[in-house]
């Protein structure tokens, strides 16, 4: 809300293009010192949200405030940095000139920080922008965004084109920023990246937030896969609440267990158990579980 000092506050923020609801009313709060992952398939509404927060497009419903200022206003963009998925700069300028120009527009940067980032990302600022590869252009965007020491960072697929080593450097920089008390909204398809740096994850589908929680919460809510080997007769476990039978053999069952596993263990009774193996789902599996129908369709299953 207006005057609310939190980095991001949205109240029913929505965007509609004709008959297409690109973003359903979104209520979102991002606090200082947190990194929020924003996940969803292509066209889910992630970039629309970020474009609305940046003021590049206007909402058709609700509103957004950045540190109490309406999104898109000049005040809202003070202390804000943005890393787009594909950067567009001026091919006739060098990387150094571009960094200087963008820093001046932002009110100045920290030269020592710029040098440190340039070294950390192994970036050569002496080349013309037109000669940079995709990865180097993305490094340029990241350095330009981070060199101003932002208090709020919005990232839309920031590691596009970066090699794994540079991806790790970027993750370290995001953690460093969080350590300094800044807030980060990170839209990404790289689950490893989200899992490594995010405190909280939002999952969006068809313009609607379908889940919101810490990574541990999300994993806990999803079924864990439990494989049990029996040394003797196998008890009937399919009737246990929260348990779904996936596969069964004479001495072995594979189950999906949602929520607490205490009921399952109670149902073992006196059965002789040789081994129990529990596999917690990865964030990617959690993410994919929201789009089972699409995954099935892609695999040709019904």
């Amino acid at each position: 809300m207006s005057g609310d000092p939190r980095p991001i506050v949205t109240d029913g923020l929505a965007k509609r293009y004709g008959r297409v609801q690109a973003l359903a009313p979104l209520d979102l709060v991002v606090d200082d010192g947190s990194v929020v992952g924003y996940l969803g398939p292509n066209g889910a509404g992630k970039s629309t949200t970020i474009n609305l927060l940046m003021g590049y497009i206007n909402p058709t419903g609700g509103a957004a405030w950045l540190r109490g200022h309406p999104a898109g206003s000049r005040e809202a963009r003070r202390g804000l940095s943005y890393i787009p998925p594909h950067s567009a700069y001026w091919p006739q300028l060098t990387g150094g000139e571009t960094l200087h120009f963008l820093a001046r527009l932002a009110g100045g940067d920290d030269p020592a920080e710029r040098r440190r980032l340039t070294a950390a990302f192994e970036f050569d600022p002496g080349k013309k922008v037109g000669a940079y590869s995709t990865g180097n252009l993305q490094k340029l965007a990241i350095i330009a965004a981070l060199a101003t020491r932002p208090r709020l960072l919005l990232c839309d697929e920031p590691s596009t084109g970066l090699d794994p080593v540079m991806g790790a450097v970027f993750r370290e920089e995001v953690k460093r920023l969080r350590g300094e008390g800044a807030a980060v909204l990170l839209s990404s398809h790289t689950m490893e990246e989200v899992e490594a740096v995010c405190d909280r994850v939002l999952i969006i589908n068809h313009g609607v937030i379908v889940d919101d929680g810490t990574i541990a919460d999300l994993k806990h809510l999803r079924a864990a896969r439990v494989t049990i080997r029996f040394a003797g007769p196998r008890p009937d476990l399919a009737a246990v609440a929260g348990v779904t039978l996936v596969d069964a053999a004479e001495d072995r069952v594979v189950l999906d267990v949602a929520g607490s596993q205490s009921g399952l263990f109670a149902a073992f009774g006196a059965a002789a158990i040789e081994s129990v193996e529990t596999k917690t789902p990865s964030l990617e599996e959690v993410f994919l579980s929201y789009y089972d129908d699409r995954v099935d369709a892609a695999n040709g299953r019904t």
Binding site: M54, G55, R74, R77, A88, L102, L105
Partner: peptide
């Protein structure tokens, strides 16, 4: 359309 305007408007520029 190239995105150059967005690079500038990400900064506090009206």
């Amino acid at each position: 359309t190239s995105g150059q305007s967005r690079s500038i408007l990400a900064r506090p520029v009206r």
